[in-house]
């Protein structure tokens, strides 16, 4: 039987204490660093697995436009998500059944690279 470790404190209370300690540390910083710490706290960091060709393409666009790679990734994701929302693009046709117990479907790297090269598209044909 799998043993589950009991938490010594309520998880909601634990998260409040952690957050409070973070705020307290931030308040002790010099004023200029406080603003940076606040910006950092408001920022969401996420890790996604993407093919290196896509990462390289993002870096090239960033260099060309003189902005950060994060900004390019955020903008293109936002645009893609908006298009997905209004039905202009779809993942349909790129998905294949997955063997993973976590997911029903997978999108193979090959398909992502084909989209990058323009050989395939997410565009929905009307």
């Amino acid at each position: 039987m799998k043993r589950q470790r009991r938490s010594a404190i309520d998880p909601a209370v634990a998260s409040l204490v952690t957050e409070g300690e973070r705020r307290q540390r931030r308040r002790r910083l010099p004023r200029a660093q406080q603003a940076k710490a606040r910006r950092d706290a408001a920022r969401q960091r996420a890790t996604y697995d993407i093919p290196k060709e896509v990462a390289r393409a993002v870096a090239e666009v960033a260099k060309e436009e003189g902005v950060s790679a994060s900004a390019v990734a955020a903008l293109l994701l936002a645009e893609g998500l908006r298009r997905l929302e209004v039905g202009e693009v779809s993942l349909h046709g790129l998905k294949e059944p997955s063997r993973s117990p976590k997911y029903d479907w997978q999108v193979p790297t090959r398909a992502v690279l084909e989209v990058l090269k323009g050989d395939r598209t997410l565009l929905v044909r009307k």
Partner: peptide, 25 residues
Amino acid sequence: DRQTNETLVQLKTLVNAFGRHVLPP
């Protein structure tokens, strides 16, 4: 009131004394 230091100090005091018996505030 999470803006004050005293709130955090006393919340930690409660947690240290009563552990999982401290409910979300």
